[in-house]
């Protein structure tokens, strides 16, 4: 953060500057995962599950992040299942008040040789839906707001396609085979991500759930650090890595990948996290979802936003995709607090 005056920025300029760790007129408010809620669905008449499968509804619901909540980003990919659906995973599309999900107990692959990308992968309706939604949003909002796409990393695809338990056991029983599986799956990450950039996404969220709740920091280093570095080099747009849960023990490795930003969970303290990454990567987060945004009120939200701002977190927002029943007033409080805080700290950029 600097202290020299910065002229007023658009939301898009603000986000892109924060991703480059350049000065901003104020801290951007971001949603690298999802801010879809039932209230927002009702407001614009774009409901789950259709808003995950119909580009017009997807764009309509995603836009509310900017138009209703005052965030600086629009994230049309609410879930983490679009490419898994296109790969042939068994899906549970659910209803308005529940997230679509992959039936991981019924995996489609059991061996590394099973990994095959269907020929029509990029033409699958659940892939095309995201690309068309991004195009619609870009057409509607121009350069006003940052549009962020989302492509799953190979570790998460491993959970979806092999099942969480078999994939984690494979990583222990046969690390070589696991690396080979990751190498093959990373092309899926690349294909879908690149197409979203070509469709108009300014940046990509790359969820890859090698969380401290499941695997060690050494696991992250051994299996994923080089691959994430390669993604940062290959993709022609900034990447926001997302990993839920405890991650402060691996943030040093993550900071060295060259990714633009890391979306971190409230299990990690903002100040400690900032100190761990040594300014090598922007941090996005980390307002608690279940206990604060879902369960409490604007006052508690305000306190968490201020803690992040005081720590110098470059982009503020929920820690992960928010529960669908989260009240709108708690989400708008994030943007309000950021604006108020910068008003009270006019020299912090």
């Amino acid at each position: 953060m600097g202290t020299a005056p910065i002229k007023s920025m658009t939301s898009r300029q603000r986000v892109l500057a924060a991703l480059r760790r350049e000065p901003v007129d104020r801290t951007p408010v971001c949603n690298p995962t999802s801010v879809a809620t039932v209230e927002l669905m009702d407001l614009v008449d774009a409901h789950f599950p259709d808003a995950n499968r119909n580009p017009v509804l997807m764009a309509k619901l995603a836009a509310t992040g900017y138009t209703e909540l005052g965030f600086d980003t629009i994230m049309p990919v609410f879930s983490i299942i679009q490419e898994s659906s296109a790969l042939g995973c068994k899906m549970q599309w659910e209803q308005k008040d529940n997230w679509p999900t992959v039936r991981m107990r019924e995996p489609i692959w059991t061996d590394v040789d099973d990994i095959k990308v269907p020929k029509d992968f990029m033409k699958h309706p659940d892939i095309v839906c995201v690309l068309d939604a991004i195009k619609l949003l870009r057409r509607e909002f121009g350069d006003e707001v940052a549009i962020v796409g989302k492509t799953m990393g190979p570790w998460t695809l491993g959970y979806h396609c092999f099942g969480v338990e078999p994939f984690l056991l494979l990583s222990l029983d046969d690390p070589g085979k696991t690396m080979l599986a990751l190498e093959r799956m990373k092309e899926i990450t690349y294909l879908f991500g690149l197409a979203q950039i070509e469709a108009g996404a300014d940046a990509l969220t790359l969820p890859d759930h090698a969380t401290g709740d499941l695997v060690s920091a050494e696991y992250y280093k051994r299996f994923l650090q080089d691959m994430h570095t390669e993604f940062a080099e290959r993709f022609p747009a900034p990447l926001i890595l997302h990993i839920c849960g405890r991650t402060v023990d691996r943030m040093g490795y993550i900071a060295d990948t060259g990714m633009a930003a890391f979306h971190f969970d409230s299990k990690n303290k903002p100040q400690e996290s900032m100190e761990t990454v040594h300014g090598k990567i922007s941090l996005v987060g980390n307002i608690n979802n279940p206990e604060t945004l879902f369960s409490k009120g604007p006052e508690e939200v305000r306190a968490e936003v201020e803690a992040n701002l005081a720590a110098g977190v470059q982009m503020v927002g929920p820690e992960c995709a928010i529960p669908l029943q989260t009240p709108i007033e708690n989400l708008t409080e994030i943007s309000r607090t950021v604006r108020d805080w910068h008003h009270a700290h006019p020299h912090v950029h």
Partner: peptide
């Protein structure tokens, strides 16, 4: 105590 993680626990459970 975070000396081991879920993959190792799964192997022990197996």
């Amino acid at each position: 105590e975070n000396f081991i993680f879920v993959p190792e626990v799964l192997a022990c459970a197996r």
